[in-house]
Design a binder for these strands. Sequence first.
DNA 1: GTCCAGGCATGCA
DNA 2: TGCATGCATGGA
Length: 279
Amino acid sequence: MEIIYENNNIILKFCQNFDLEQTFDCGQCFRFEKDNDGFFRGIANNRQLVLRQDGDTVTFFDITKEEFNEKWKSYFDLDRDYAKILNELSFDCHVKKACEETSGIRILRQDSWEILCSFIISQNNNIPRIKKIIASLCSLLGEPIIGNIYSFPSAEKVFKAGIEGLEPIKSGFRAKYIFDAAEKVANKIIDLEKIQSLNYSEAKKSLMNIKGVGEKVADCVLLFGFGFHEAFPRDVWVNRVIEKHYGKDFSSDCFGKNAGIAQQYLFYYERNTTSLKKQ
DNA sequence: GTCCAGGCATGCA
DNA sequence: TGCATGCATGGA
C-alpha cells in the first residue's frame, strides 16, 4: 500500500484486503452509509469522515497526514497484514471459500462505549432498525457535528437521561440494558480503560456483569471495540454455519488469536449467500 | 394478521 | 447445567 497526501486528502494506492463496502456492510458498524455517487460518509472519532474507493485506491477526504496516522490507520486496522492472516486461516476450507468470495473486510477498531451500547441495541433486532435507534440516540443526546448528524452520546449523558429519558428512541426492552451499561460505565463500576488491560476471558467476564450483555454481545464489544481478535461472536448466522459445517464439537480455539477475523468472514459469507437465495 | 430480527434474563426441571 | 419462553418495535 502506498500513502499519498494531496490537496488535503489521503490517497491509499494498491490497497490489499481493504474494501470499504464490505468493511462497512459486514455488521460491525452502524454509522457509515454509501451515497448514490459512491461516497461513504460516517461518524467516528467525533467527526464526519468522507471516503471513496475506486478499485484498489481509497481516498480519505479533508484530512491531515497527522490525523490519518494518529486516528484512522488504527481505526481501519491498516497496519495488520490481512493477506497473511487470511492465508493462515485458510487451512479451514470454509473460511477459505468465504475469503475467495470476499477478501476486503477489516475489523474496525471503534470506540468501546459506542460499541457496547450499539451491540446491546442489536440484540433480537435487525440491522436497519439498529441503525435507526442509534441515530435517534445520537440526535437525542449527542452533540451536533454536521447538519442533522450528532456524535454518539457519552455514558454520562445517557446515565443522566435515565430510562424514561430514553423513551423517544423506541429501543423497547433494551432501554433498561442501555441505562444499566451507562450507569456502570459512568460511575466506573465497569472501567472501560481497565478492561483493555485485562486478558480476553477476564475482560469478557467483566462486561457480562452489565444487564443485557451475554456472551455474544460481550464478544462483539471485545472484537470491535477493544481489538481482542480472538473473540468469536456466535450469533444466529455463525451458529448456522457451525451447525451446517462443523458440528457439536466445534470450538473457535481452532482459529487461535485471529478467530474473530475468521468469524467475520464466515458471518458475511453466510449472510450474503443466504439472502441471495431468498431473493 | 403473522413472522422475524448480529440475544438475553428469567423460571423451571 | 440445559431448555423454553417473553420481550418492544417495526419491516417484510
